[in-house]
């Protein structure tokens, strides 16, 4: 395994935050999603030397999209204090053992060099990618909660991009720009659709 200094903690942080984005609600989920986006982008673009324009585009587009997509009234200190309490977070994760098991299975599967060119790829990035796919894809197929499913979509696409980056490296500038815009679209459209469906269900 060619796990270098900062990749191992990033891999774990990406996975935990992806789990939070899918399993929790309200502030914890949005914070988890935001952190997952940042850590996944750092893993994907590997900013060791010069500044990557792809990384800047990704963080700027998704930061803006997060601000647009987040529900109103979410920024309250008391709300953050109660929602982000460690006990609450642990309870949410414990309540979803299947997601936790999927994440662990994804990390293990990704860490083991499989066939194909994957044996020359970056193990930490690959493990994080497969873990994110294992966390994000099942809710896409089964979940009835639209908002959580939209966040799962973002987790799954980030996992796909990490898996690709582990083998081919970071995206070309134009492709990186297109994917940044695409991920932002998924976030905004998902949030808008979720609020419309929720409003329709209530009425």
């Amino acid at each position: 395994m060619n796990i270098t200094g900062f990749e191992l903690p990033l891999m774990l942080l990406v996975t935990v935050n992806a789990m939070l984005a899918v399993t929790t609600a309200r502030r914890t989920a949005w914070v988890g999603l935001g952190l997952m986006i940042i850590f996944a982008a750092l893993l994907e673009f590997h900013p060791t030397g010069s500044i990557s324009y792809g990384l800047i585009a990704r963080l700027a587009a998704l930061g803006l999209a997060l601000l647009i997509a987040m529900p109103d009234g979410i920024f309250t200190t008391a709300g953050f204090r109660s929602d982000l309490a460690p006990r609450q977070i642990v309870a949410a994760l414990v309540a979803h053992p299947v997601v936790a098991a999927s994440a662990v299975a994804g990390l293990l599967l990704g860490s083991i060099p499989l066939a194909l060119p994957i044996e020359t790829s970056n193990a930490a990035v690959r493990a994080a990618g497969i873990a994110l796919l294992m966390i994000g894809v099942p809710p896409l197929l089964t979940s009835r909660y639209v908002e959580a499913t939209s966040r799962a979509a973002l987790v799954a696409i980030s996992g796909t991009l990490l898996l690709r980056a582990s083998i081919f490296g970071a995206l070309e500038p134009i492709a990186a720009l297109a994917f940044s815009a695409g991920l932002a679209t998924v976030l905004i459209v998902g949030a808008r659709v979720a609020s419309t469906i929720a409003a329709g269900d209530e009425s």
Partner: peptide, 23 residues
């Protein structure tokens, strides 16, 4: 319109599942 929103949501799900296939 919730029906329109559901159609777009279905589209979002499909696209997210197709991207891993492309990669």
């Amino acid at each position: 319109d919730p029906a329109r929103a559901r159609a777009v949501f279905r589209d979002l799900r499909t696209i997210t599942l197709l991207l891993p296939a492309v990669v």
